[in-house]
Design a protein around this nucleic acid. Structure first.
Lengths: 341, 341
DNA sequence: TGTTAGCACTCATTACTTTCGAGTGCTAAC
DNA sequence: GTTAGCACTCGAAAGTAATGAGTGCTAACA
């Protein structure tokens, strides 16, 4: 059977209507509210076909139809129209430049959640492949040394090192020079064992400190691995009855809190993001099993210097996909304009 | 009317029973399961008295009684028995030493939540009254200067400063010495305008940088003001039907996400913590209006050097107060032993 | 051949009634 | 002061009936 234009129109009408009301939609509704001028009986015949083809289902006999995951998919892929939203409306919700990236991302998550009425997540950019920009040791007191590590993209990490031998300013200076001349500009992978032992040899009696510093560098990178994820509007899920019953809600909220699941989502999105800017996961397509009854729309942002992160909106399957996509695009534009100055 | 011993025993039995079952408890139950050897009729008479005195209520005629906030309060204040819990059991759940305080606190929150089956929160210590330990400027490149600020308690902040004039290593060294000799050891309040202008004068053409650094110091402190709060086990509230219905749950979860309310809780706890180690807020006693139907048990931990923070457990009013208090005490002991080495 | 009117049928939802039993308050007797 | 007994209350659960939205199917129509 072929999905001809009339069937498309009917399917589209069903999805639209269901997105709005959340109620199964019947043949009579479609017949009245479309410009097809067909009687409900005809619509019924077509709907029977659409059901056979797998685009819609009846929750029970004698109920209207609701879209299947496949139905949503067709809708999202081919029928969604770009809403021409007034730029005015979005102007009021501009992100403000923040000097702290984490604040900006928190703000982004919140903005998206309040704008869309769904739950949102924003992952901090991962900086995997970046290069060391500066290492700076400072003497805090006789026993403590502060190591500051700056990575390309201006990510800064610091660690306090406890040293056994007393150490004077001059030694610190020497170590600084030693470390910076040899390590600056290198990526994490380029710091190998050979380089490390060479450095240790040059440091002489202070080789312990070199070890510690390199450990700290390794750890600084590693820390970034279990990446930060900001969420907002988690409680928006209670606005949608299909997600609000306590077992479903509990699972979802658990997933949001644990962040393990979200992490998976981020990884998957980043992996697939080469092709398309925005990805839509509907129901079972989701990388995360606890979100079987949700749809997830994700986007990848790029702050330059290899700093890429993921933004996602999680809501019911009957979410307003147009609005969500629009919002994501807008936020990405804003992030761009803030960082690519 | 006097709350004599028999009434106490009966009240205690009612509370205990209700904590376990969550069902209103009737006279017959009490008569059977206490060693008072009284008939249900007698118990009924006493219960009528207890109701008149405001310790218990009937949710409706012909139902058993449940404790009022006042009833819980009496129970918590005078009838709760210190459970002798086996130390063994808790050993398995020891906190591990982490070099990053935030990780440790996250872990603490999680531990508490899983152990108690309630929601938990842990606030990062506020460092209000602390002293500057070290300022360290480093040249990143021609335009950028890295300022690292270490505050007592080893809290480290860093900022990147953009400088207009090119600056060489020597100048950086001089500025470092200037700033450290004058600022180290001072508390935030002691850095006044007079001192600042004196420093600027000594810095000569680089007075801009001094300004920037001092701004950064101020901001570092300010950032700490909107303090970090870690939560865990939020979805545990779904385990208690009285909190699980969607409107109540939504409010609670919103409060947990926003953290504004939790912040209030922290402030209040810290303010009142002088007197007692552990505080219990029952129902309407709560500082946070969204938690009217909850009980909150909080404790203040002290890592030394003025670093104080709050730990809290939030659950239904019929929470297992003994268990919660035990758990909090244990966690505080563990935090102590980790940090007071 | 595609479209439509009409009709019997299904089934979730809602409201109403009944039954059941846990628990009470009160009275009278011990 | 304590207890047995009894009438009474009222929520929860179960059963029943009415409602109506929506379907599939058939037969007639253009």
């Amino acid at each position: 059977m072929e999905l001809n234009e009339r069937k498309m129109k009917i399917l589209q009408a069903i999805v639209r209507n269901y997105l709005e009301t959340g109620e199964p939609v019947g043949s009579r509704t479609i017949s009245k509210y479309t410009d097809l001028n067909l009687s409900s009986a005809t619509i019924r015949n077509e709907m029977a076909d659409l059901e056979e083809m797998g685009y819609i289902v009846q929750p029970h006999t004698s109920a209207g139809r609701i879209p299947t995951d496949l139905g949503y998919r067709i809708y999202v892929d081919t029928m969604m129209q770009e809403k021409e939203r007034e730029v005015e409306e979005l102007k009021g919700t501009l992100l403000e430049k923040e000097e702290r990236l984490d604040q900006l991302l928190k703000q982004t998550a919140k903005l998206l959640a309040t704008n869309t009425n769904y739950a949102s997540m924003v992952s901090a950019p991962s900086i995997h492949q970046n290069k060391l920009k500066l290492i700076q040791l400072s003497r805090v007191n006789d026993e403590q040394l502060l190591a500051v590590i700056v990575i390309e993209g201006n990510v800064i990490k610091n660690t306090l090192l406890n040293v056994s031998e007393k150490i004077n300013e001059e030694t610190v200076l020497k170590l600084n020079i030693l470390l910076n001349t040899h390590l600056t500009g290198l990526s994490i992978e380029e710091i190998n064992l050979k380089l490390i032992s060479s450095l240790k040899a040059q440091a002489g009696i202070h080789s312990d400190i070199v070890s510690d510093v390199i450990d700290a560098v390794a750890k600084a990178i590693h820390e970034e691995d279990d990446l930060e994820i900001y969420t907002s509007g988690t409680n928006n899920i209670f606005k949608y009855p299909e997600l609000a019953d306590s077992s479903a809600a509990s699972e979802l909220i658990g997933a949001f809190e644990e962040k393990q699941a979200l992490n998976e989502l981020v990884v998957r999105t980043l992996a697939e993001s080469e092709e398309t800017g925005i990805q839509v996961y509907i129901g079972n397509e989701s990388p995360v099993s606890t979100m079987k009854d949700c749809s997830i729309v994700t986007a990848t942002y790029d702050l330059g210097e290899g700093m890429k992160g993921t933004i996602g909106i999680i809501g019911p399957k009957r979410m307003d996909y147009e609005k969500v996509v629009d919002n994501l695009k807008d936020v990405m534009r804003q992030l761009d304009s803030i960082y690519k100055k």
